[in-house]
Design a protein around this nucleic acid. Sequence first.
DNA 1: AATTTCGACAACCGCAGGCTA
DNA 2: TTAGCCTGCGGTTGTCGAAAT
Length: 330
Amino acid sequence: MGRYPCCKESSELKKGPWSTDEDKKLADYIHENGIGNWQMVPKGAGLNRCGKSCRLRWTNYLRPDIKRGCFSEEEEDMIIQLHKQLGNRWSKIAAKLPAGRTDNEVKNYYNTHIKKKLMRLGIDPITHKPLPPNLNHLLNNLPHNYYNSFNNNPIISPLESILRLQANLTQMANAQLLQNIAQFLNNNNNNIPLPLAQNNNNVPMLFNNNVTTFDNFNVESNESPLLFDHPLSTTPNSYSIESVLDQPSPMSNSLGFVPGNCDLVPSVLTSNNILSLPPLVSATPETSNSDQMFPTGAMQCGGGNDDDFSALEKIFCDEGNSSLLESIFQ
DNA sequence: AATTTCGACAACCGCAGGCTA
DNA sequence: TTAGCCTGCGGTTGTCGAAAT
């Protein structure tokens, strides 16, 4: 029953771009014999192609009534309108165009040119409805100045906030790496001066060897979990999540940025006035002998007590160590 | 000058429905 | 009636030349 397949799957059949010789053979054959059974065409034309490939080549490229070249403004407008009505029915769209365009050509032109044009105009190329405002649009239309959650100083735009957040996350990662270095140096009993931890009550423990580093720093301590120098220690200790939400910045309900001498560090508020940062991964097991190095399990960083962090800062700033550290942080 | 990246478009793939022996 | 080929169609991939690095 059924027909015999004229063109079976064969790895010997040629695929890919057509040569001019192949085009001529196919065109000559069809001019002489007309379009009949496509499965018979390759054999008749002396082509090592399957019938389907011949049909596509003829209908999309060799057919004499095909109009090639650039699409006119009128054609483009028609395609947009027809696509709006018909969707991706490219053969229907091509049939309704006055010129002899193929469905494949219309489809390619729409996907490579018209889509981009519609996007530039703020129109969804699929639904033909206005696109929702994107991030750039939002950023371009928001006020330029935003205000620090802590001291109401005008500071940064949302875009700058994003960039600073990225920079500060990098800084946090570097701080963790610095901790690793300190532990490594300590474990190897070398002579590089190491920072000593202070066991002050209510003092944030930045370089905590426990997993809870950065966790649950109480703002009321008037101290800071921030790296390096910052003005947070001078801010009133009575702000709340509500006061943050009142800020004009769309980002300030979750993130606050504090301008400082060295850098800015994002902070996250909880409902209990607890400034909380995500825990860093512990660099060493909790039972490691580095706990002996930091007897309190922590080291204050920055704030009003420069001595606490000065040793590590020296590691950073010392010309002799800078190249080593640069190579590590790269 | 060499290499990489990107854009345009030709060609292929696979499915669905029609057709036919 | 039915098995299986043929055709049309839309989605996807591959190729090639231009531009960028």
